Amino acid sequence: MKDASLDDTDRKILRILCSDGRISNQKLAEQVNLSPTPCWNRVRALEGAGYITGYAAVLDQRTMGLPETVIIEVTLERHDDEIFQRFGDALALLPEVMEAYLLTGEYDYLIKVAVSGTEGYESFLRQKLYKIPGIRHSRSTFALRCLKRVHSVVP
């Protein structure tokens, strides 16, 4: 469902910024058929309203020496607020963890990690993930290839 407070120009600005966060205001304004000042004001309003929460560089995992992506599903021993909080806080401190989601269903967490081969994966499991108290079970899958990657979706 589309957000009623965003018009087509706002959505176009957001789509362009999702694909090129470093675009100059002048080029952005040209692409959305606005003059620079109204375009700048719209971007600032989108930031102020919380539609844009930040800008980031997207790094190449392979070049960074972490070419493999592993998806890990984790089930915790107990389901209380304290263990969820402690586990989530611990995950946030691990640099290999790219994304982590609290789930419904069979597993409690889905974790996406970047590692350097099977040795890097084993090291991550033994020295980091399995040191976090409260894990009952985990299941891992190596990603063969990324077919699509987006960082945000504009309706």
Rank of each mutant, 00 (worst) to 15 (best):
M1S: 14
K2F: 05
A4E: 15
S5G: 09
S5F: 07
S5C: 09
S5I: 14
S5H: 12
D7E: 03
D8N: 08
D8L: 12
T9I: 08
D10M: 06
D10Y: 03
K12C: 01
K12M: 04
K12W: 01
L14Y: 06
I16W: 03
S19I: 09
S19Y: 01
S19D: 11
G21Y: 02
Q26S: 13
Q26W: 11
K27T: 13
L28C: 04
A29E: 02
E30T: 06
E30V: 04
Q31G: 02
V32T: 04
V32M: 06
N33G: 07
N33S: 13
S35G: 12
P36T: 12
T37S: 11
T37E: 08
P38T: 06
P38Q: 03
P38C: 04
C39W: 05
R42P: 01
V43G: 00
R44Q: 12
A45L: 10
A45V: 00
L46Y: 03
G48E: 14
G48F: 00
A49R: 14
A49H: 11
G50K: 00
Y51M: 00
I52M: 02
I52R: 03
I52E: 07
G54K: 06
Y55R: 11
Y55V: 03
V58N: 05
V58I: 13
D60M: 00
D60F: 01
Q61D: 14
Q61C: 12
T63I: 14
M64A: 15
M64E: 13
L66A: 07
L66K: 09
I72T: 06
E73N: 15
E73V: 01
V74S: 00
T75C: 04
L76I: 03
E77M: 11
R78N: 11
H79F: 00
D81S: 09
D81N: 10
E82V: 09
E82K: 12
I83V: 13
F84S: 05
R86S: 10
R86N: 11
G88H: 01
G88N: 10
D89V: 04
A90E: 07
A92C: 07
A92W: 04
P95L: 08
M98P: 03
E99I: 06
A100S: 14
L102V: 15
T104A: 14
E106L: 08
E106W: 01
E106S: 07
Y107P: 02
L110S: 11
L110E: 09
I111P: 00
K112Q: 12
V113P: 03
V113S: 06
A114N: 11
T118A: 09
T118L: 12
E119M: 11
G120L: 06
S123G: 05
S123T: 14
F124N: 02
L125D: 05
R126E: 15
K128C: 07
K128G: 02
K128Y: 09
L129V: 02
Y130T: 12
Y130A: 09
Y130P: 04
K131M: 05
I135P: 03
H137S: 08
R139Y: 10
R139Q: 14
S140Q: 02
T141F: 13
T141N: 11
F142L: 05
F142R: 10
F142N: 09
A143M: 05
A143F: 02
L144H: 07
R145Y: 08
R145I: 12
C146L: 10
K148P: 00
R149V: 13
H151T: 13
V153D: 08
